[in-house]
Design a protein around this nucleic acid. Structure first.
Length: 125
RNA sequence: AUAGUCAGCCGUUCUACCGUCCCGUGGAAUAGCGGGGAGGAAAGUCCGGGCAGCACAGGGCGCCAUGCUUCCUAACGGGAAGGCAUCCGCGAGGGUGCAUCAGCGCAACAGAGAACGACCGCCGCGCCCCCUGGGGCGCGGUAAGGGUGAAAAGGUGGGGUAAGAGCCCACCGGGCCCCACGGCGACGUGGGGUGCCGUGCGCCUCAUGGGCUGCAAGACCAUGUACACCCCGACUGGCGAAGCCAGCGCGUUGGCCCGGCGCGUCCCAUCGCUGUCGAUGGGAGCGGGGGGGGUAGGUCGCUAAAGGGCAUGGGCAACCAUGUUCCGUAGAUAAAUGGUAGGAUUGGGCCGAUGGCCCAAACAGAACCCGGCUUAUAGGCUGACUAUUUUU
RNA sequence: GGCGCGUUCGUAUAACGGUUAGUACUCAAGAUUUUCAUUCUUGCAAUAGGGGUUCGAUUCCCCUACGCGCUA
């Protein structure tokens, strides 16, 4: 099994991002909040999931702390996203929001990501 | 040895595996291979430049910034070396300030008075009263004494006087003028003259500099919309015409003025006595201004530059010149530079202590690029110097 | 990212560098009323933090923290 996470698996267009926050479903496991939405796969040969990783300035004031939180979330996502397979013809768009007031250790963040992914998988199944 | 001052530097490291951004190569491919990937402050955005767009003939006023001297620099409100005053420190050293004062303004409360200073006090003269020493009233002189205040009109002593006062004299402090010497200069040292003598802040004045906006600048492609809407537009005279000149009006350099520059077009209808002329109304076009609509995707700008190291020479130094050096070079854009495991290093704690175990790893993350300043920073290193104690 | 602005009692807001930082609402106590409300009287309560200039700083200057706006 290969774990990778490249640019095309990220959300970077406002047209994709706004619908998630407007009409997505939410789940939460401290310190991460997740908002996700199933969309039709168009074009159909893209990746199965695309993600937006956010650590906001209102929770972490210093830039290096925001960077660190983002990197740990991204690493945990990279190693665990293969556990989710969206239904055929659909793609999963999700936003991971860091809402802790300080940066937690990697093991804690990875555990949180696993619980969120399990929750999403059960709701889709 | 301890405590400290100044200047400069470093600011964890190695291996394995899994990843990520850029460049090159490669290819069907997002496979593979090779190379590179945060800082001394990347920060605050406080100064100065480069670069880009807009505006621009030039001048004056205003506004803003700076303000001892000489130098460095692309430039600076930065830096270096100095000068003077003042404060802190035993000291090595450190902090703050410095153009001008001709004129003008302010100095709450307190106090007689904050600048044309008489409340008390001291002294003189006139009048009155008791009566021969005082008291009261009036007119003057007086800044030596009092208390207030952040600040009270140079200080001490003597002469002088009705009482006093730089009113005069000696010494001291400061200012101004002249001369000599030293220094590029700020200034210093010495001599002479002059009785010139309260303080702080601000305005004013003088000199120098500054056009405005900032890479979300700006250029191109794609998508898409609205050739929509509102406001202003004016001509007159001279020369035979074209055109030129003068005046007038409008617009314009983002505070204002002068000045400069640009524009002031054409058609139709009606009326006026012929017309290529005039008036009124309408329309079009052009110019200028206002206000609005759409896109939020991509490419360029974009990273090698006032670069660093070393050597030699110049300079007290900041720095400059020459030579050499495959020493090195992030370029992302909902935004890469990371994660895990093990070891080393440093610091702290505990124990059965020349070892073992546990914990921790400063401040902090590029967003167009440079030069500074300021602020944050665990711990450590180097050099020069100071004070105290001990030894030789 | 760039540019600009602000921070005063619990809340909203004033201030020429100069009394004990003012005003309104709120809050507390008292008076009025059989009681409550209204009204009246009295009181509590603040210059974001740190330095500098000044005799004296909410005000002027510098640094730090926090908040807000504009900008493709």
């Amino acid at each position: 099994m290969r774990y990778f996470f490249r640019k095309d698996q990220r959300l970077n267009k406002e047209a994709d991002i706004t619908p998630i926050f407007r009409s997505g479903r939410a789940t939460f496991s401290f310190p991460i909040k997740c908002i996700y939405k199933l969309v039709p796969a168009d074009p159909p040969d893209g990746p199965p999931c695309r993600v937006l990783i956010v650590s906001g300035k209102s929770y972490l004031k210093r830039a290096h702390k925001r960077n660190s939180a983002k990197r740990r979330m991204r690493e945990a996502y990279r190693l665990n996203i293969h556990t989710i397979v969206p239904p055929a013809g659909h793609r999963l768009h999700m936003a991971l929001l860091y809402v802790g007031r300080n940066v937690r250790p990697y093991a804690e963040i990875e555990n949180s990501i696993k619980m969120i992914l399990r929750d999403i998988a059960s709701q889709m199944g």
